[in-house]
């Protein structure tokens, strides 16, 4: 068992380095056009957003619609730190995450302490308020936003940032803390009765998710040169929600697939924005009704699952 785990880890590392190396080579040798580079970066940021939102929606079972708002908080904070205060980028990323987490705490504590289902409204409203405030604050560039942000994020940052996010979330979910969150999703009263402090864990998951969105925001800002309030409207929050729902509530690999799928879809449909949203709306309703567990349910894509799909049943035979 132990040896097999080591073997698996090794394979994963080899695959990761291969993907990293190939794309890096493509970028340095100008084999990947700007259009594809943009979409690759968007895909990475979307994966971070979807995975961190899944922590709230999928693993803890509470609907948040403010992910774009937290992303905005992270983006603007980090830009202020690098451009206006002149501190190094890693510090800016940290500041962006911490500030997003603090805002998440302020919103999450009162709403989650009582009725989890108010979270959806509170976060949706919060996201819009963030946007309105950003439009009105001269220091942050108002409606035009901030231009000329230095590009401090390269493929190395993005790739390993995404991998690190996924690893940390996976470790969290498979720890006693993550199990407490899952217990709340399954049955909050029973979780309390088993000694789980449900308020603490709901707020914790929400705050961690917000920090993750802040991380994505600071990467985004320092790659795309420009941030504008309109980029972080509730539409983006819905996009992320669709990624999570399509991929599966409670599946990290599902979130990755959902994020990739939606990145491709939005690239293809970028000239038909209304049609794209109608399509997403239908996807949301259908996935809620017919497959609330998403493409992957709470399963992860693993060697075992793949071998099962391949028709090799040795992995399943022992459970009969």
């Amino acid at each position: 068992m132990k040896e097999k785990n080591w073997f698996q880890t090794l394979i994963i590392f080899i695959v990761l380095f291969a993907v990293y190396g190939v794309v890096q080579l493509g970028i340095s040798e100008n084999l990947i056009s700007d259009y594809y580079q943009t979409n690759i970066f968007l895909a990475g940021i979307n994966i971070i957003l979807a995975a961190t939102l899944n922590l709230i929606n999928g693993f803890t079972g509470h609907l948040s619609l403010g992910h774009a708002g937290f992303m905005a908080v992270g983006a603007y904070t980090s830009v202020v730190v690098t451009m206006k205060l002149g501190y190094p980028f890693p510090l800016a990323v940290l500041a962006g995450m911490v500030f997003a987490a603090v805002v998440g705490f302020i919103i999450g504590l009162p709403t989650l302490r009582l009725r989890g289902d108010y979270l959806a409204i509170a976060t949706l409203g919060f996201g819009e308020i963030i946007r309105v405030i950003l439009v009105n604050v001269e220091y942050l560039g108002g409606a035009t936003g901030i231009l000329g942000i230095p590009r401090l994020v390269n493929w190395t940052w993005l790739f390993w940032g995404t991998v690190l996010t996924l690893v940390l979330i996976r470790n969290f979910v498979r720890s006693s803390h993550g199990r407490a969150c899952l217990a709340i999703r399954e049955n909050e009263i029973a979780a309390e009765m088993m000694g789980v402090n449900s308020t603490y864990y709901k707020v914790l998951a929400f705050v961690l998710g917000a920090a993750g969105a802040g991380f994505a925001g600071s990467l985004y800002a320092h790659y795309f040169y420009v941030i504008q309030p309109s980029k972080f409207s509730f539409l983006l929050s819905f996009d992320i929600l669709v990624m999570v729902m399509v991929g599966g509530l409670g599946s990290l690999t599902g979130s990755c697939v959902g994020a990739l799928l939606l990145t491709v879809l939005s690239a293809l449909l970028q000239n038909f924005p209304e049609f794209r949203m109608v399509l997403y709306a239908v996807m949301l309703i259908i996935s809620a009704i017919y497959r609330p567990q998403g493409l992957f349910g709470d399963k992860e894509i693993s060697a075992q699952l793949l071998s099962r799909w391949g028709g090799i049943f040795r992995a399943t035979s022992r459970s009969e």
Binding site: R179, A180, L182, A183, A190, G195
Partner: peptide
């Protein structure tokens, strides 16, 4: 009121861990 979608083992682990926990940092970095 079991945690229906979790494994039998996880159901018990959740109840057992309340008195035997570790911090967030050890959880994140194993």
């Amino acid at each position: 009121r079991l945690f229906g979608n979790l494994t039998v083992l996880d159901n018990v682990k959740i109840a057992y861990q309340s008195g035997h926990n570790y911090g967030l940092i050890p959880a994140f970095f194993r």
